[in-house]
């Protein structure tokens, strides 16, 4: 049986097809991801093209309302930018930060977890103590403080340019301990297995054993946690941007759009903040539901 046939026949796909929630969330997530990645080509307008902006177009209501125009499906913001396009570009930035931040957290967490679990002793005790202390604090608070410190260290102009990577770093560093603990737990189990002893007997280096022998066997549970954490990381970014310590209006993520729109809530232009909010909520909800389903589908005890 080739790989495709095996996949079609697998329990995994079967449980996916049996779960309407998983199918709908996967569809929503796919729409978000493709809309985000392809936004420069399929978005109806380019919100960063200053030449196409006109203040005459500002605060147009969505197309379904009395004064709406079909050219601006979800209306426009205070500077006449098309909201739908803004949301697509914003989702792109939000996803970019979220995925990179989780990637960074995974890299740090897996390394620490492998080393702590395999080496044991003092190294293990020290690393896990650090993780425990950090876990006492909510991730958003750590991300906020890290972001604040970097903001204080770097000069303003330079900081604005690299803010997106500062956010990746802040959110990633706030979320590594969970990965480290999971990997350490499974590494402790794997360390005692015969294949690891065999590898030790033929004299492989410790790094080699950790990376090419233990790592593939401890990756599964971490990836499920990574999916669940992706939704949280996207929310972290949105929250920081909403608080005004994240991405600047020149590089608006969904959180920045919501913050900008929040100023106009009282003058009746509710769509400027509500539509980005709905986009964010839908994306995060679908990712969370997918993560939940993945956790249950891969957990043999629940089958």
């Amino acid at each position: 049986m080739n790989a495709v046939a095996r996949f079609i026949d697998s329990d995994f796909l079967y449980s996916f097809r049996r779960s309407p929630v998983a199918i709908i969330s996967a569809l929503v997530a796919l729409v978000c991801v493709f809309g985000a990645i392809l936004s420069p080509w399929i978005a109806p307008h380019d919100p960063f093209d200053l030449a196409s902006l006109s203040l005459m177009d500002s605060f147009k209501p969505p197309a379904f309302m009395a004064d709406g125009e079909n050219a601006y499906l979800l209306g426009t913001d205070d500077q006449g930018r098309d909201l739908l396009s803004g949301i697509m570009y914003g989702t792109r930035i939000s996803l970019f930060v979220g995925v990179l931040a989780i990637g960074f957290a995974l890299a740090v967490g897996i390394t620490v977890g492998l080393v702590a679990g395999y080496m044991g002793g003092t190294v293990d005790a020290v690393l896990m103590r650090i993780a425990d202390v950090q876990l006492t604090f909510p991730a958003i608070l750590i991300a906020l403080l890290v972001d604040g410190v970097v903001r204080a260290v770097l000069p303003r102009e330079f900081h604005e340019k690299i803010e997106i990577y500062v956010l990746v770093f802040a959110i990633g560093i706030a979320r590594w301990p969970q990965f480290a603990r999971t990997v350490r737990g499974s590494t402790l189990v794997e360390r005692g297995r015969e294949y690891v002893m065999a590898a030790q007997v033929i004299g492989l280096s410790r790094a080699r054993i950790m990376i090419s022998h233990i790592l593939p066997n401890v990756l599964g549970p971490v990836l499920v946690i990574a999916t669940l954490n992706l939704g949280l990381a996207i929310l972290d970014e949105a929250t920081l941007s909403f608080l005004g310590v994240g991405l600047p209006p020149t590089q608006p993520s969904l959180g920045t759009l919501i913050r900008i729109g929040n100023d106009f809530l009282f003058s009746g232009e509710w769509w400027v903040t509500i539509f980005p909010g709905i986009a964010l909520a839908l994306m995060v909800l679908s990712i969370n539901l997918l993560g939940d389903w993945l956790r249950d589908a891969l957990n043999p005890r629940l089958r």
């Binding site: 919501i258 903040t273 509500i274």
Partner: peptide, 8 residues
């Protein structure tokens, strides 16, 4: 997210 609940 918390801030969205607040805005709503």
């Amino acid at each position: 997210p918390t801030f969205l609940i607040g805005i709503l």
